[in-house]
């Protein structure tokens, strides 16, 4: 249990997927203008990250490892994620229309989100077991959500700010992201402090 908490807390705060691992920067910069779209996108990402982990982990351990095909994991994982996202889109559209209307538009953005492929590959790299992988995916997704929601608040302030012409748009956004990222440095050592 303690081990699970360590994985969860470090994935959310200490090694935040967006702000310290640089996974999923595109949606972080592209979909953080408003809080509601930030929340919608993060929920979709959390769901896909969890499910992608649940699906790819058994495929890796049951199908690829016994036959010595570990090197196929990139091709296999990205295909599974692409297929899975498509499938979720169809199932939601057919059976849960309200959910599709709120989350459906985010799904096409998720296949090429490196946080999703990243978490499945990281789980294998770190040799997590199934449960640890799921917890890591959950933490990664929650960390993504935290970063996006925090940043969308900053972005709204930024829109009204007077800044030099050539800093407008991406440069100002990146520098704001830098300041948000600095605040996460404060979580260094939290894991050691909490769980020892």
């Amino acid at each position: 249990m303690k081990e699970m908490m360590i994985i969860l807390v470090s994935a959310i705060f200490v090694d935040n997927f967006v702000l310290s691992k640089f996974l999923g920067i595109c949606p972080f910069l592209g979909v953080s203008k408003k809080i509601d779209s930030a929340v919608g996108m993060s929920l979709a990402v959390i769901f896909v990250m969890l499910m992608a982990t649940v699906v790819t982990y058994p495929i890796y351990t049951i199908l690829l490892v016994p036959f010595g095909l570990e090197y196929l994991k990139i091709v296999a994982f990205i295909l599974i994620i692409a297929l899975f996202v498509q499938l979720v889109e169809i199932v939601l559209q057919r059976f849960v229309p309200p959910l599709y209307q709120s989350l459906g538009i985010y799904l096409p953005l998720i296949t090429t989100n490196c946080a999703v492929l990243g978490v499945t590959l990281l789980n294998i790299d770190k040799e997590y077991d199934f449960l640890q992988s799921v917890v890591n995916a959950l933490g990664g997704g929650l960390g993504f959500m935290l970063a996006l929601i925090l940043f969308s608040g900053v972005r709204q302030r930024l829109q009204d700010a007077e800044i030099p012409q050539f800093f407008k748009g991406m440069p100002a956004t990146l520098i704001a992201a830098s300041i948000v990222s600095v605040s996460f440095v404060g979580f260094n050592g939290v894991v050691e402090g909490l769980f020892q």
């Binding site: 702000l19 310290s20 691992k21 640089f22 910069l29 592209g30 203008k33 012409q165 050539f166 800093f167 407008k168 748009g169 991406m170 440069p171 100002a172 956004t173 990146l174 520098i175 992201a177 830098s178 300041i179 990222s181 600095v182 440095v185």
Partner: peptide, 29 residues
């Protein structure tokens, strides 16, 4: 640090914008 990464890229893009006199794009580039 990661924060320095964001900062450096922001400054470099601002310098590129300044040198090319590029108008900042409405769509966040």
């Amino acid at each position: 640090t990661p924060a320095g990464g964001f900062f450096t890229l922001g400054i470099i893009i601002a310098v590129v914008n300044f040198l090319t006199h590029k108008k900042p794009s409405e769509k966040n580039g």
